[in-house]
Design a binder for these strands. Structure first.
Length: 611
DNA sequence: TTAGGGTTAG
């Protein structure tokens, strides 16, 4: 690490008395715990292995060592350099003190940074600013704002760097009030916004939910750099304004601003949310053009984007083309496969990951347990359950929820109950998973009991809880209870009906043969019914021999999803039941003519880009 | 000589 001048005299042992004295001195500065004896040999660092004359290092060499330790985030060597600075008496120097505070901050040791600052004989604006950025760097917003107030109290004049840090501290705390106070102070000082300060303000207002303020500052900037653009794009994506985020992405190119990794990650997130496959592919092309395609986090974001845009094949292609995989990309691909119903592939990826020596974390386990649940792969699920602690993962609510789901779907009710009953904390997902299991095995009474118990324990039901409880009513033929709960969901719990709720209600009426009521329910839906709704009605019509209504439902279902085979089959069954064999044959023929299901994507692929 | 903004992926 250090480049030292060669010494002519040989020093036998560098750790003789003078160093011990320095060590004690360092201990008195709380650099080294006082109960720690001086080491018989120097600590194992590259700095310590250097010749003895390191104890007589010139100031400039020590200063650059401290800087290097800061950039390498090497706390141990940084401490040693501090120790040597104390020994040489350089620690009283303000410049050295500032460097040391910065080093400790960058190495994440806020306590050391603070104690070095507190022991400084003389401080300047740099010292305050460096300590402030140490606080914000360690995401300690409260400490940073306290220091900011202390600084103003002591009459130190703040500059743009100080304010910039105070703004960052407010956004760490997500405190719009604090942020506005600091902004007001900046205006009061009459300071001009530089790029740093402006981006910090844009980001703070964005994080605190005041997009108008963020945009106003962004628009007022005469010269915007990449960071300002990224701050604004991130603000939009954070608040679901995905169109605006993508619009800025385009504008950025128009203004000739260079894209950065962050830009790609947030814009890919926007494409994911909008399910904008074509736009996502366009961004993928730019990523490849600018050489970002080998970045692990960008590749993982691409996998996620393609998966959300329902293009599993493209997600797999990105994964295949990665030079190596980290925990994030493995977990993403396992989760993507599980989400697309490719549970066997998810399990095989998990074992491949294991073979390659990659240890899973809790997120991986949650995904792989979902795959086990969907596959009803009890043995594999049990194996993963048994190895959880061995993977170094402690049981928490999320893992236990996945286990409840897995054992439930695998039909092992006693294991499900055992896990559920022994959980330390149960959230809405835990209760909902348990209600689903009971609904699945047809125990409506049990699911109602759980529904009441969860509320007694102050856990409110969510939209998914209602999907399961309604499905439980439907399976048990409890029409009135189902209608009552649906009404309560909308009026008392203020939960908006989703397509799943509507589908459950149609199923509820349909199973009971109350087809006219189901029809009325569909006509009163607040959203346009999709193919699943019509198909649910169609199956009920087939069971209860209401052929005319069934034909109408089938027509609607086919109109909305012409490539799904089930409505054709059901309609042809209706015609067969009526003895209309020609019509039945006509439907079969049109089903084959129209082809099968599959996602549509533009011609050509990007496999070639990676060659 | 020393400091500051965007942290996004499962």
């Amino acid at each position: 690490m250090l480049r030292l001048p060669k010494r002519k005299t040989k020093v036998r042992n560098p750790w003789l008395p003078p160093v011990s004295q320095a060590y004690n001195l360092a201990s008195s500065y709380e650099l080294i715990p006082t109960d720690h004896c001086p080491p018989p040999h120097p600590p194992h660092t590259s700095l310590a292995r250097l010749p003895a004359d390191k104890t007589y290092l010139p100031f400039s060499t020590l200063a650059s060592t401290v800087k290097e330790c800061a950039s390498k985030k090497s706390l141990l060597e940084g401490r040693l350099a501090h120790f040597l600075a104390v020994w040489r008496g350089f620690d009283c120097d303000r410049y050295m003190g500032n460097l040391l505070i910065d080093m400790y901050g960058k190495c994440g040791s806020l306590q050391d940074a603070r104690s070095t600052f507190d022991k400084m004989v003389s401080r300047n604006l740099f010292s305050w600013n460096i300590l402030l950025s140490a606080y914000t760097g360690c995401r300690c917003g409260e400490g940073a704002l306290e220091l900011f107030s202390l600084m103003l109290e002591q009459g130190t004049q703040a500059d743009t760097c100080t304010f910039s840090n105070a703004i960052v501290a407010s956004s760490i705390l997500m405190s719009l009030l604090e942020g506005r106070h600091v902004h007001f102070a900046i205006l009061n000082e009459g300071l001009e916004l530089d790029a740093h300060l402006a981006s910090a303000l844009v980001s703070m207002y964005g994080k605190c939910g005041s997009l108008e303020d963020a945009r106003e500052i962004f628009d007022s900037l005469p010269l915007k750099d990449g960071v300002s653009w990224n701050a604004m794009i991130t603000a939009y994506s954070m608040h679901g304004c995905h169109f605006e985020a993508l619009h800025l992405f385009q504008e950025m190119q128009f203004h000739g601003v260079k894209y950065a990794k962050v830009t790609f990650l947030s814009s890919l997130g926007a494409c994911s949310n909008l399910m904008a496959l074509l736009y996502g592919m366009l961004i993928h092309a730019i990523i490849v053009e600018q050489g970002f395609q080998f970045d692990l986090s960008i590749s993982t974001a691409l996998i996620s984007m393609y998966s959300n845009c329902r293009s599993l094949e493209d997600a797999q292609c990105v994964f295949r083309n990665m030079s190596h995989h980290d925990l994030f990309s493995w977990s993403a691909m396992i989760s993507v496969n599980a989400q697309h119903g490719e549970d066997e592939a998810a399990l095989s990826l998990f074992s491949q990951m294991h073979q390659e020596g990659m240890k899973p974390d809790r997120v991986t386990l949650v995904s792989v347990l979902t795959a086990c649940a969907n596959q009803a792969a009890l043995v594999q699920g049990q194996l993963i359950h048994a190895n959880t602690l061995e993977f170094g993962i402690e049981f928490d609510c999320a893992i236990e929820n996945s286990l409840v789901n897995m054992y439930g779907k695998c039909g092992s009710l006693s294991d499900t109950k055992h896990i559920f009953d022994n959980m330390n904390t149960r959230n809405v997902v835990s209760w909902t998973a348990m209600i689903e299991v009971q609904a699945y095995v047809g125990q409506a009474a049990e699911s109602f009991k759980l529904f009441h118990e969860m509320q007694e324990e102050n856990v409110g039901p969510n939209d998914v809880t209602f999907v399961n409880i309604l499905s439980s009513c439907s399976h048990a033929g409890l029409i009135e209870e189902g209608c009552f709960l649906y009404k309560a969901m909308v009026t008392e719990y203020n939960i908006e009906s989703t397509m799943e709720h509507y589908s459950s209600m149609i199923d509820l009426f349909g199973r009971a043969g109350r087809l006219a009521e189901a029809d009325v329910f569909i006509s009163e839906m607040s959203i346009e019914p999709n193919a699943v709704i019509w198909e649910t009605l169609l199956s009920a019509c087939r069971v209860h021999n209401d052929f005319d209504r069934g034909k109408q439902a089938a027509e609607r279902a086919i109109l909305l999803a012409s490539k799904i085979s089930s409505p054709y089959v059901l309609l042809s069954n209706i015609y067969s039941a009526e003895g209309k064999w020609d019509d039945a044959a006509r439907i079969w023929k049109s089903m084959f003519e129209r082809g099968t299901t599959g996602s549509q994507k533009p011609e050509g692929g990007f496999e070639l880009w990676y060659d």
